[in-house]
Amino acid sequence: MSISTQEKPAVASPKTSSSDVKIAAKDVCVFYGEKQALFNVNLDIAANQVISLIGPSGCGKSTFLRSINRMNDVVPSCRVEGLITLEGQDIYDPEIDVVELRARVGMVFQKPNPFPKSIYDNVAYGPRIHGQATGKAELDEIVERSLQRAGLWNEVKDRLESPGTGLSGGQQQRLCIARAIAVSPEVILMDEPCSALDPIATARVEELIDELRQNFTIVIVTHSMQQAARVSQRTAFFHLGILVEEGDTDQIFTRPSDERTQDYITGRFG
């Protein structure tokens, strides 16, 4: 069984809309205790493309990202209102198992955070807990394929049993990407994946993101506008918890329709 032919989890309902909208957010508001962090965000994310979320610090882009795989659930005071659907299904529906959701919507974090285990175990952990391999051979295959896709295989194939924490920063981040794609998610969320990396490592990861677009829908939060321009097809600009505008990356960077976007991309604040 190869990764690409693996069945989708059975919760997935048939696509509802005619277009290939993967994720749809409708009137999403997020509160931390009394404080509101997001205001009525409406955003459709199409399948098999990269969308960048940009905006100044504290604008709510990470908050929005983390509501897509319900990572906000672990913050006790956090409350999400509105509707987020994955292939037409409400992900905050009590019927949804958050664990299955996160298997479908993977995540890569700001700082590389490999488990203090071997490289192999890092990648194999997800498939193991989701029961995606029936035997050792199959697991080996998943690990190899994921590392290859993450462009790390050639560098680590001889030392799969050495600890993942021993790799360089850029390698660690690619390991985290390999770990995320090993469970063959449909969507990958990336929260400033390159902010802790040097320029060369950043370039590698950016290349990788572009390649991964073939098979995954990617949502990336970034501080660097150049990065957004380089890797994404669509860009959404957030400001003070409001989604100001969203459109083709070219259009956002060359002819933004909102004044605030204009100010931000020309460096007047942020």
Partner: peptide, 12 residues
């Protein structure tokens, strides 16, 4: 799983 049912076990 072995009996050839389509679909996936919810839990390991």
């Amino acid at each position: 799983l072995r009996s050839g049912t389509t679909g996936k076990l919810h839990s390991l």
